[in-house]
Design a protein around this nucleic acid. Structure first.
Lengths: 349, 349
DNA sequence: TTGAAAGCGTTACCAA
DNA sequence: TTGGTAACGCTTTCAA
């Protein structure tokens, strides 16, 4: 029915072994022979059987990418950056790798399930993106799974979450605490004192670190007026909207809002507009990430840029072993502060 | 090294065949035996070897999802909807399917490459989402690939693009033309006459159909002032921004802008704001899709809602054969008009 | 540089 | 209901 390696071999008058070698390009093959094989492949319209190949070689050309929310552009960027970096060895011909994007929805169970599924597929690498859940049992479970994966030859990369000790997973982390601090320091330097903070979901590393940075900045400036202006919620627009409404209820006189994430920032902006407030004249909004649509969707948005795509790309390279893993298996991408537009000082009063 | 089916069989005192049956749940197995097997699986921490299983069964539990731009929330929604629908037969235990999201970037070559890669993986199904490229040679090439895939047992679904004759691919199409017409009719009914149109990339089915609907509406109303106010560009923010600037240059007095897509609409809004125009007081903006962030990011945005998630979910069901394919293999999701907020009539003048 | 052949871990058919 | 056992299609020593 379907064309197999043997068929190609027969037509090219060589052994199956030779065809395999040509296709994988990992062994010397005479030019003339290679020609003949390639011609046969073409004429027969032969497509390698991935599963068979994976079984024999005990590794597949699949790379798993776990994301918390695939509908969030943040993870779209991560996924596409990884995807563009995962060409494996084999160059032009057989270096094709396939990214399997797994949407965990931030759910611990699904995270584990997907890890098992990827283990089952004998994935070449697994990249876990975004903040991790801070539950001891779950962290241990994930670490265990990752250990098992590495043992089976799967390269593991953590991108945007803390390193996991006792694991040979490479970690690429963002400086969430530092970024959070700088963001709030910036607002403080503009004269803001009553700053609302829309935090991410509880028990998430990114949430905690960014918030800690915010609090450090406030403490450093001796500002206490904003201490109670913190509301937690999921990393989505609706939550940003709801949280901002709540903050305005708590303190209608606040002059700035920090959103723990850009998607959340858009929801915050919507809530402010609905309340009849102008951005940035009445209230300044600061988002954390640097999504393409945030740049001009909200003019004068103050952002702390995290070079996401680059970081994700590096994660991909590290996953594939094309770049030496950093000492200790940990690397940090420093947040870069970028202030745009005319984000204003608090309105006089 | 790694645990195999045989190990489990040995420990459970049964044959490998029986273990396989328990794991797949497709053959009757005595309750007591099943217990024993499951216990052994658990104790040994056994994980099925996907490639081996796929080789033997000549089908994998991978489902490919081709998207034009994974960083666009539109496709994120599609992908996650498909992902939540692809549980295969095998219920609780082994029904786990993995979605392989492939980012074509709208590039014909990559589309074909990914199709080959999925064929290589012996994917259980392939879902092609978003508008198709209107190049005869390319369409033929894709049709050929899809034919080959179906022959090999892969279910093929087209979601948001026209059906492919001579193919047993199920097509789920959006009524782009009708939606485009209604959108512009709505603006016309409000009194707008000079309406700019930011179209998608040329040679794309969605671009053409939506634009045709727009022109139908104009022609139907006998309006000719807007005939030259059409600019093409990619489906992204930057293009929406640039196109709007260009449109304003062509006709500074336009009172409405239709964007062929929500992402584009956001760029258009940004350009209008930069030009000092207010939305919707000075210029009304109408976006085509119904992305979560468009709803309140742009108050009073007029949108034609396409029930994306539902459509994608149905595509998943159809792909998996859980729902009868519609007669002729084609189904149409009708655009639904939703007018929100206070999208205004043109300013007096 | 090339060929022969032994796996790789499951599935599924045929018996029992 | 269960066991035995050929495939499945490729990779990879080992020899030549």
């Amino acid at each position: 029915m379907t064309v197999t390696l043997a068929d190609v071999a027969a037509r090219a008058q060589v052994s199956p072994a030779t065809v395999s070698r040509v296709l994988n390009g990992n062994y010397p093959v005479a030019a003339a022979t290679r020609e003949r094989v390639l011609k046969a492949v073409d004429e027969l319209d032969y497509v390698l059987n991935g599963p068979a190949s994976a079984l024999a070689a005990s590794t597949s050309d699949l790379v798993g990418v776990l994301v918390n929310d695939i509908a969030d552009p943040f993870f779209g960027i991560m996924a596409s950056a990884v995807q563009s970096e995962i060409v494996g060895p084999g160059g032009r011909a057989g270096g094709e790798r396939l990214a399997v994007v797994c949407n965990t929805g931030g759910d611990p169970e699904r995270e584990l399930t997907y890890l098992t599924l990827l283990q089952r597929q004998r994935a070449a690498a697994v990249v876990l993106t975004g903040g991790a859940i801070e539950d001891e049992a779950h962290v241990a479970a994930v670490a265990g799974k990752l250990r098992r994966l590495s043992e089976a030859g799967t390269r593991v990369v953590l991108c945007g979450r803390p390193p996991l000790p006792d694991t040979d997973a490479v970690a690429l982390t963002f400086d969430n605490r530092g970024g959070g601090r700088e963001l709030t320091e910036h607002l403080l330097s503009l004269g803001h004192r009553r700053i609302g903070y829309v935090a991410g979901p509880e028990e998430r590393t990114t949430t905690r670190h960014r918030l800690e940075g915010h609090r450090e900045a406030l403490a450093g400036a001796g500002v206490t007026e904003s201490d109670d202006l913190v509301v937690h919620g999921p990393y989505d627009r609706a939550a940003g909207h709801a949280a901002t409404v709540e903050l305005l209820g708590k303190d209608p006189s606040l002059t700035a809002v920090v959103a723990a994430n850009d998607t959340v920032a858009l929801g915050a902006c919507a809530a402010l507009r609905e309340a009849g407030l102008r951005i940035p004249e009445d209230v300044s909004v600061a988002g954390f990430d640097d999504l393409p649509f945030s740049v001009d969707a909200v003019p004068a948005l103050t952002t702390v840029r995290l070079p996401l795509a680059e970081a994700a790309a590096r994660a991909g390279r590290i996953a594939m072993g094309r770049e030496a893993a950093p000492p200790g298996g940990v690397d940090v991408v420093r947040g870069e502060l970028a202030v745009r537009g005319s984000t204003g000082a608090p309105r006089g009063k």
